[in-house]
Amino acid sequence: MDRVPILRLGDCLLVTVQVDMHDELAMSLQDDLTNKIVATKARGVLIDISALEMVDSFIGRMLGNIASMSRILDAQTVVVGMQPAVAITLVELGLSLPGIRTALNVDAGLALLRRALDRGDEGGYVD
């Protein structure tokens, strides 16, 4: 069974979703990621969804859940590279992913994460 690769990048984790997410894959990603955050003591999580072309409400909620779980484990989540079509779909579904930071690409996401960690934010609330 295919899994979503989770790469370690200093004290951050980079999750690159390269295939269309189906529900089972999304569930296993939640397991893998939470385990990995605990194992590596990661402070930040970058989820690159630039290859994701379709989302449904389940995947949208799953992204929100991952962010909440990471926050509890003291890691900040940034979702990067969302495609226009995906963004429109999520807005139409009424899922504006509150509490999740977003960035245009991995570079910008990493910079955002770095700034946030340097400021010493407590993983938590996004203004």
């Binding site: 963004a87 807005v91 977003t102 245009l104 690409n105």
Partner: peptide
């Protein structure tokens, strides 16, 4: 809606 979609993309 447009603003939310742009924010989701990180802008």
């Amino acid at each position: 809606k447009t603003v939310s979609a742009a924010q989701l993309m990180g802008a």
